[in-house]
């Protein structure tokens, strides 16, 4: 039996990413540790994404509240807006939207950077300079995306709630402590924890796919553009697949 080309390419890429991830786990705990480069990547990746995450989170919180309000008013549950927004933001909208923005901003940047390093022989130059390029370039970036996305999601969730507070105050007057108290009362630790845990997996997916695409770039500068583009597309799809898996697992474990 032979597979048609798109399926064969898809499975080939899936196998490639799996092997690449296996190589990551084989190298991540082995010395030499690239601590300085890891910190630099954490700073760059977190710092690069923060303005965009902040702006989009604020708008998302504001718009979500303004669009929810008419229905909530109609059903006479306007006072439940903070609780509803908090649950939606913390459990689903925050992690997924911020991960998608992160994939667009950081996944493409990693794919393009490593891709251009590959086609201009900088990765080979690194190897002849006594450096394991996989460790120096891939392990540090994947760890940085895995660690930084949850931080960005926490910050983004907070900004979304602030945006929602502004949205509520366009129509009525509510104090910030009251708004936050109503929002937080609706959330339990069991809801908060799975939502944050899944962002580590989203961050890992963005990092590993961005690095895989960059590291396997071919065909010159055209390949660099293709690597950046497919890093975003593939990691965005994986964010949704992982989100689906996460919701199934939390459901099975009784956290829903």
């Amino acid at each position: 039996m032979t597979l048609n080309k798109p399926w064969a390419d898809f499975l080939d890429e899936l196998g490639g990413i799996a092997r690449f991830a296996t190589r990551f786990f084989a190298q991540v705990f082995r010395p030499r540790y690239e601590g300085a480069e890891l910190l630099r990547q954490c700073f760059l990746i977190g710092n690069l994404s923060l303005p965009l995450v902040g702006l989009t989170s604020f708008i998302m919180g504001l718009v979500l509240t303004m669009q929810l309000r008419p229905s909530m008013v109609e059903y006479g549950v306007e006072s439940q807006i903070p609780a509803m927004v908090a649950i939606a933001v913390v459990r689903e909208i925050g992690p997924v939207i911020i991960a998608l923005i992160f994939a667009g901003k950081i996944g493409s940047s990693i794919g393009a950077e490593l891709g251009s390093m590959k086609v201009t022989e900088q990765i080979d130059a690194m190897e002849v300079s006594g450096t394991n390029p996989f460790k120096y370039l891939v392990v540090t970036r994947v760890l940085a995306t895995t660690l930084m996305l949850p931080v960005l999601v926490l910050i983004g969730d907070s900004i979304m709630l602030f945006g929602s507070f502004i949205g509520v105050n366009i129509y009525t007057v509510t104090s910030f402590p009251l708004y936050i108290s109503q929002a937080m009362d609706s959330l339990t630790f069991q809801e908060f924890l799975p939502a944050i845990l899944k962002t580590f997996f989203f961050g890992f997916a963005v990092g590993i796919i961005g690095c895989y695409k960059g590291f396997h770039t071919s065909r010159g500068t055209e390949g660099v553009g293709r690597a950046a583009n497919s890093a975003v597309v593939v990691s965005s799809v994986w964010i949704f697949i992982l989100d689906l898996l996460a919701v199934q697992i939390t459901d099975l474990l009784g956290y829903n």
């Binding site: 251009s116 390093m117 201009t120 900088q122 080979d124 130059a125 002849v128 300079s129 006594g130 450096t131």
Partner: peptide, 29 residues
């Protein structure tokens, strides 16, 4: 490899580093 230099066709200078950092990189590594 420290005893064998390699001059790449594309030069392979690290774009994100200054000339000084490019030169220091092999020494540090």
């Amino acid at each position: 490899r420290a005893k064998v230099g390699f001059l790449f066709q594309s030069n392979a200078l690290y774009d994100s580093m200054t000339v000084r950092e490019n030169l220091e990189f092999p020494m540090r590594r």
